Computed example of a mutant assay.
Amino acid sequence: MSKKNKNPQRPTSEFIFQRKNYLFLFIGLAFIVLGFILMSGGGSDDPNVFNPDIYSFRRIRLAPTLVLIGLGIQVYAILLNPNKNKQ
């Protein structure tokens, strides 16, 4: 005859990410979306006409930098441990 535990401990289900993680995830996502919005446009309706606006500072330097910063924030948000500072 085996004894059964009357109070079996159930594993508590917790989310992997906390509020702080999600905050950084959304901030990073906003940077990425803003970068892609700034990168868009600059084309020409007529394929025979060249529009030099496609090589503007905004599309060549600023927008890709924002996308890379957003990706860096995403990596930070995933690796962030919000319980590390709590005691």
Rank of each mutant, 00 (worst) to 15 (best):
F57H: 10
F57D: 12
G43N: 11
E14H: 08
I37Q: 11
Y76M: 04
N48V: 00
Y55H: 11
I69T: 08
L23T: 06
Q87D: 08
Q9T: 11
T12C: 02
A77S: 14
N48A: 13
P52H: 07
R59F: 10
F26D: 11
L79A: 07
P11A: 11
D46H: 02
I69H: 09
L25R: 00
L62P: 00
A77L: 05
K6V: 13
S13V: 12
N21F: 04
L80F: 06
P64D: 06
F57V: 04
F26A: 14
Q87M: 07
N85E: 09
L80Q: 05
D46P: 01
N85G: 09
V75I: 15
G43D: 08
L29H: 11
P82F: 05
V33G: 06
N48L: 05
M39F: 01
L25W: 09
G35T: 09
I73R: 03
I60W: 00
G41I: 05
F36S: 08
D45Y: 03
E14N: 04
G70M: 13
L62S: 06
Q74W: 06
I78M: 12
A30S: 15
R10Y: 03
N83K: 13
I73T: 11
F50L: 00
K20S: 06
M1A: 13
K86S: 03
N81I: 07
L80R: 09
I73Q: 08
N21I: 05
R59A: 07
V67S: 00
L34D: 10
M39E: 06
Q18E: 09
V33E: 07
K84V: 10
I73N: 09
L68H: 15
L80G: 01
T65D: 02
R59K: 09
F31P: 02
N81E: 14
G70H: 05
F36H: 05
L80W: 03
Y55S: 15
L29T: 10
R61Y: 14
R61L: 07
Q87N: 15
N48T: 00
I32S: 07
P8T: 03
I69E: 02
L79M: 13
M1F: 05
G42E: 05
S44R: 00
I54S: 08
L71Y: 12
N81S: 10
I32F: 04
S40F: 05
Q74K: 04
K20I: 10
A30Q: 10
L25F: 07
L62Y: 00
N5G: 05
G72F: 14
V67E: 06
N48I: 00
F17I: 08
G35I: 00
D53H: 08
F57I: 11
V67Y: 03
Q9L: 12
G35A: 07
K6T: 15
R59M: 11
S44L: 00
L25K: 01
K6N: 14
P47R: 08
K20M: 13
G28V: 01
L38Q: 13
Q87V: 10
N81T: 03
R10H: 15
